[in-house]
Amino acid sequence: MPAVSATPAALDAPPAGEAMRRLALASLVALIVLGVAWEAWLAPTGRGTLVVKVLPLALALPGVWLRRLYTFRWLSLVVWLYFVEGVVRAWGDRGTSAALAGLEIALSVLLFAACAAHIRQRLRAAA
Rank of each mutant, 00 (worst) to 15 (best):
G35K: 00
G46F: 05
P44G: 08
T45E: 14
A16I: 10
A13S: 10
F72C: 03
L55K: 04
A13F: 15
I32N: 03
G35S: 12
P15F: 06
W74V: 02
L50M: 14
P15E: 06
G63I: 01
W65K: 09
V64I: 15
G46T: 06
L11K: 10
W41E: 04
L61V: 15
A26M: 08
R47M: 10
G63M: 03
V52Y: 10
R22K: 13
A37N: 05
L61F: 09
V33C: 08
Y70D: 13
D12N: 07
A19R: 15
W74F: 07
A19M: 11
E39L: 05
W41T: 11
F72E: 01
R67N: 09
V36E: 04
A30C: 12
A13T: 07
E18K: 14
L55M: 14
E39H: 15
W41P: 03
P62A: 07
G48S: 06
A13V: 11
T45D: 14
T71D: 03
L66S: 11
G35F: 01
L31E: 02
P62Q: 06
G35N: 06
T7H: 12
A19Q: 11
R47I: 09
G48C: 06
V64S: 00
A43I: 02
G17K: 05
W41N: 02
V64F: 00
G48T: 07
L42R: 09
A19G: 09
A16K: 08
R21V: 12
L42K: 05
V36K: 03
L50S: 12
P8K: 07
V29H: 02
L50I: 05
L34S: 04
I32T: 08
W41Y: 14
R21C: 07
A30F: 04
G48F: 05
G48W: 04
V51L: 13
R68A: 09
A19L: 13
V29P: 03
R47F: 10
P8Y: 08
V64Q: 00
W41I: 14
R68S: 04
R22S: 11
L57S: 00
A10C: 08
W74N: 02
S27W: 02
A10R: 08
L59F: 14
P14K: 09
W65P: 00
A37C: 13
